[in-house]
Structures are given as C-alpha cells and as structure tokens.
C-alpha cells in the first residue's frame, strides 16, 4: 500500500510537471515556436527579412519603400535627436552619463527587466528617467523630442541583433513577459480583437488596402515615421493607435501594461537586427 502511494504520487508529480510545461512554456521555446510559425507561413521569406515588416513579403510596397529610403523622412529626427542627446542638462550631466557605452549602440538591450525596481525598463522610459534623475522635466512619451532622441539611439544601434534577456530563474522577468504575452493574445475593444488576430493569424492578409505585419520583426525598427502621422512616433504611439482601431480604451504610454507588452514583443524578435528608425505607410 505504501509503495502504491509513492507510485501514485510520482505519477501525479509527472502529470503536474507536464501540464506546467504546456501551460507555462519558457520564453525561448515560445519564441522558437513563433519563428517556426512564421517561417512555415512565409516559406520564401528569409528570417532576417522579417525585420522589414510588410516589406518582407509585399513586393509592390517594398519597391516604394526602397525608393523612399533614398531620402528617408526620419533623417531630420536623427539629426535633431543627436543634437538633443548631446545637449547637457542644467546640472552639467547628459544622456551619455545614464547609459552603458555612453548610450551609443545600446538599443538592442532594451527593454530589460530591472529586478531591483520590479519593472520593465524600455529605452524611452530610461531616457525620461535619466532626465528626471538630473532634475529635468520628463518629455511627452510618443512624439517630439523623446522620439527624436530614441531615433538617434536606434540609428547608432543599427545592425545589432536584439538581445532581450529573460532568465528562467528570474520570476519577476517571467511574470512581466507572461503579462505582456497575455495582453498580446487577449481580445479587447468593441471589435473583440487581440493583437494576435491581426499580427499572427491574419499576418500577410490585407486590412482594406494595407497588409498586416507579422509579430516577428515588429519591435526592430522603432521609432517610426508613419506617413499617416506625418511625424516620427514611438512604439507606444502605435499601441495606442491599434487599441483605438479595435475601439479599446488605450492604456497610458509607458504604463506597466504596455512596457510588459513591449518586453514580450521585443523578445519575440530576439536575434533580428535593429533597423530603426524606419518609415512606414
């Protein structure tokens, strides 16, 4: 009877472990599942090309985009961003003092989970944190000076593969990743859509005249000059736009919810090269 109990216990433990594996897969396994999914869906698209969004698989749009890149509309933002970046704060410190490597070529490491603070730190969040630590006012999150500084920092990071780190031993980082993932797959708004409905299941199909981009590569090219915006904007500006398109009340830019979402989304693009800032329709 005693041995039977032990045997039963072992079977139960094995079942629980198996179930936990199914329900709570580790981020790297999930990223590979995402990569495999899109490589099957777009067998003619090289993995690195997913960093170019819809231009990876829409030939006509790609031709126009390549021509636009001859005189990119985000160029002024890079120049402005460099000037802002190099302008010292009132206390004599500057952005370079707040970042590793003086803030040059570091975008690929963002966002990261700060275990001491228990929250996800995006690049834009770190830029404003840097300002506030020097007694400066924070900048508006989605456009303008902050987006320009972010554009310059992305430009210096071009070609570096995204390297978002999540240790399977870091429960805080895993929880933030899980929360971001849940938001990505949760139906919201009156239209009852999740991000994944457009960018996983329907990726490559057209919404009116616009093809839908893939999850893979969605985080590589920010900030973006969108022609419909007529200016450069951050990823959270796009989150806001997507939310409103499905008639969901958006979260605040750089809210914990959207930083977690960016954490998940960027992790899915690990290994793809930073190619921001970029232009999009």
């Amino acid at each position: 009877m005693k041995s039977l109990n032990l045997k039963t216990l072992l079977i139960v433990c094995a079942c629980v472990a198996l179930l936990a594996g199914v329900v709570q897969a580790d981020p790297e396994t999930e990223r590979q599942t995402m990569v495999d999914y899109f490589q099957k869906k777009f067998p003619n698209v090289e993995l690195a090309e997913f960093a170019n969004g819809i231009y990876a698989f829409d030939e006509n749009a790609r031709e126009q985009w390549i021509e636009i890149e001859d005189f990119p509309p985000y160029e002024i933002a890079i120049e402005d961003g460099e000037a802002f970046f190099n302008t010292p704060f009132a206390n004599g410190r500057g952005y370079a003092d707040c970042f590793e490597n003086g803030g040059i070529a570091v975008r690929q490491n963002y966002p990261y989970f700060d275990s001491s603070k228990g929250e996800v730190i995006t690049l834009e969040f770190a830029i404003n944190q840097c300002r506030q630590d020097s007694g400066e006012q924070p900048l508006p999150w989605m456009t303008g000076e902050l987006a320009a500084i972010s554009a310059y920092m992305s430009f210096t990071s071009r070609g570096n593969p995204i390297d978002v780190q999540i240790s399977n031993d870091d429960s805080g980082a895993l929880a933030a990743y899980a929360a971001g993932k849940q938001l990505y797959f949760t139906r919201r708004g009156q239209l009852n859509f999740a991000c994944s409905h457009c960018h996983v299941q329907s990726a490559g199909l057209a919404l009116r005249a616009d093809p839908l981009s893939t999850t893979l590569g969605q985080a590589t090219h920010w900030p973006v000059y969108r022609f419909k915006w007529g200016e450069i904007g951050t990823l959270h500006k796009r989150f806001k736009e997507c939310s409103e398109q499905v008639r969901a009340q958006p979260f605040e830019a750089q809210s914990a919810e959207w930083r977690n979402l960016e954490f998940y989304l960027t992790y899915m693009s690990n290994g793809l090269e930073i190619n921001g800032p970029a232009s999009r329709r």
Binding site: V23, T33, M34, D36, Y37, Q182, F185, T186, R187, A194, S196, H197, V200, Q201
Partner: peptide, 8 residues
C-alpha cells in the same frame, strides 16, 4: 486568451 496561442 489562451485559445489564441499558437502551437506547432
């Protein structure tokens, strides 16, 4: 939301 997850 779990119903929307992908699996290979």
């Amino acid at each position: 939301w779990r119903d929307n997850l992908i699996s290979n």
